[in-house]
Amino acid sequence: MIEAGSRVRLAAKARLQRDRLTGKPFLLYPERGLELSDSAARIVALCEADRTVAAIADELTAASGEPRERIESEVLSFLRALDDRGLLVVT
C-alpha cells in the first residue's frame, strides 16, 4: 500500500497525453484510457524522478494554497487507485 513516504513513478505502460480534440489530459495504457481531471493530471505529471508522495503533496500545496493535509489525502487515494491498476512503480 502506498504511504506518504512511498516513492512513485508512472509505469512504462502508461502514457499521459493531451487529447487533440478537447485538450483534456488522458492517461493511456494497454486496452484502456482514463480521462483525467486537471488536478489528477498534475499529480500524474509529478510522478517522476521517484518523488515521494509527501513531496508531490508539498508541490501541489505550494501551487494551490489549499490545506496540505487534505491534498495529501487526495493524492494518496488517487495514487492508490492507479497502483491497483498497475500503473505505478512504487519503491
Binding site: 487529447d19 486496452e31 484510457g33
Partner: peptide, 10 residues
Amino acid sequence: AAALGVLQAN
C-alpha cells in the same frame, strides 16, 4: 482515425 478522436490502435 486520430482526427476523429481515436486514441488507441489495436
